[in-house]
Design a protein around this nucleic acid. Sequence first.
DNA 1: TGAATTTTGTGACATATATCAATTGAAAGC
DNA 2: GCTTTCAATTGATATATGTCACAAAATTCA
Lengths: 194, 194
Amino acid sequence: MLILNSSIEKLRHFLSTATHIPIEKVEIEESVLTETSYKKNQYILSEGSVCNSVIFIVSGLIRSYYLKDGLEVNTGFYKENDIACSFNSLVNRVPSNEFLQALENTTAIVLPYESLLKLYSTSDQWQEIGRIMTERECVYLANRVTFLSFESARTKYLNLLKEQPELVNRVPVHHLASYIGVSRETLSRIRSGI
Amino acid sequence: MLILNSSIEKLRHFLSTATHIPIEKVEIEESVLTETSYKKNQYILSEGSVCNSVIFIVSGLIRSYYLKDGLEVNTGFYKENDIACSFNSLVNRVPSNEFLQALENTTAIVLPYESLLKLYSTSDQWQEIGRIMTERECVYLANRVTFLSFESARTKYLNLLKEQPELVNRVPVHHLASYIGVSRETLSRIRSGI
DNA sequence: TGAATTTTGTGACATATATCAATTGAAAGC
DNA sequence: GCTTTCAATTGATATATGTCACAAAATTCA
């Protein structure tokens, strides 16, 4: 058995909860999935490659980032029960401008994009899952626009603490700083309460 | 006839182009649509109301904005061949935090959310249209995050010029300023080339 | 057409945050 | 355990951009 049943159950449970589709209607053919693991610091995707799968994280932590003037700008963190991919690259079949890298040893279930498309075309349930998951992403991104663009450094950090408190204890501070669009020095000062 | 055929054709053409679904497969039952017009400055949706429809703009211009500390922050502009709604409110059935207001006299086709859900549940084509349109929105928002958060005022304005040049000639400058997260004075100086 | 309102443009000044530099502290590797 | 690399803190300084105040255009509308 290439893939643990417990991992698949975790994925089904996650999809059901996220979409409000009853779990018994969330059917996944085991054969299209593979379980993979990534060592800390290992790259899952590099700039310039087309993202060919979505991965559901069973355990561990991944970050996405791109390079701006040679410096890393973090765009997201994905932990257990999150789905990670380079979205634009995946859906538009273009080279990714971002990297995906494991920040911790990670196990994940990989669903190839081709298989996802097949699921879409053969299953109403999956078509709906795809739409709802994408809607969720939109809502998340719209919030991110608001907070990143129109709030102070302190507010952005407080919002991060409120919305994703788990990250703060797992992700190095300089990565968090770039994720919320603040220099690491400024974030350091905010955290020390100045 | 409540609704002009030419408007419906415009909508079908738009959806076909945006999703790459052949136009003959984009079927819309006329009875679920209504054509409406809004006078300049008229409100289409107010903060606190639940957004109950998506509107396809046949002609004219609409903005969305929310209030932050009593001041307006613009979140989007929607012109001919754009779709406007308060996304989070629409898909999560919660009161909107934003306003939708016509900036020009506008005609639009209104599709109630209930009808959209019905289309989703009875038509594979529409399920796919919904998913792809949502994917497009995600890509747009992800770009917006990048530009608003990590670029200088000048770069943000230049990017706006590049990506949505039509807006610059139609939208008052102070609205553009708030849309790209810059004070109107700063934008004024950027435009005058200082 | 003329008054009133809204929009845009400039100057002076304030300030949040970035940048640079140096230090300390923690983690990784041998 | 010691060395080396990486991460976090702290201070001094620079700067982009915001804020305030006022004036000039441009629109609106009666």
